[in-house]
Amino acid sequence: MSRLQTRFAELKEQNRAALVTFVTGGDPNYDASLAILKGLPAAGADVIELGMPFTDPMADGPAIQLANIRALDNGQDLAKTLQMVRAFREGEQVTPLVLMGYFNPIHKYGVERFIAEAVASGVDGLIVVDLPPEHNVDLCDPAQAAGLDFIRLTTPTTDDKRLPKVLNGSSGFVYYVSVAGVTGAGAATLDHVEQAVTRLRRHTDLPLCIGFGIRTPEHAATIARLAEGVVVGSALIDQIANATSDAQAIDGVLSLCSALAEGVRGARA
């Protein structure tokens, strides 16, 4: 079993949802970002999404755009993000880690080289925002052949006709983008999420993780009652943006992570 499969199977046993956290690799800088990454499992993150910075994050709102800029300004690149994963894996063998980003840096790095190094570094899966199933040959197919999970985004606009195409070839989990919009914008209503979960369950047995607009432990708990996972990104990144020192950034992210984890863990009690 892959790390993602193992993790979601364990959580099912415990009857609780996963807290999935997103931070951008290298934000605010390499060392602080690595400290955050290393601290996340103990702070209650069940699955980690690590952003690969890109100059033009077209699907992201202001918080993650700025995180990308901070990371790039401080010298982060794809090689360093992979290096960060290797450093994380030195002490951590169970928490699944998924790289998330846009295709161009991978395309430039070389798809074959990227996949080989990602596998060797201990990456478990990939989320690439601008690679819909129409472009499976570009990365999804070779990545899965190499044992990486390829996690698909489904959205409110992905209708029943299209869902099978999107889910076919998805592995690890399914990420439901609960609002049509950019990251960090408004949240979906509970009704909408309930209906979406019911609809998605008709099409897949993969764990469902819900994201976009989830910022507080209370909100996370509500979602955790409906789905196998709750994704939080922009709210964590705001802790970095608002910090005046690296120590404060690290503490801010990990404290919020702990609070979110408490919310998620208590949700079905």
């Binding site: 077209m58 295709f103 819909p132 129409e134 472009h135 606009t157």
Partner: peptide, 10 residues
């Protein structure tokens, strides 16, 4: 090609 986020594909 069509390299866009899933929301826009439909």
């Amino acid at each position: 090609g069509q390299y866009v986020a899933e929301t826009l594909m439909p």
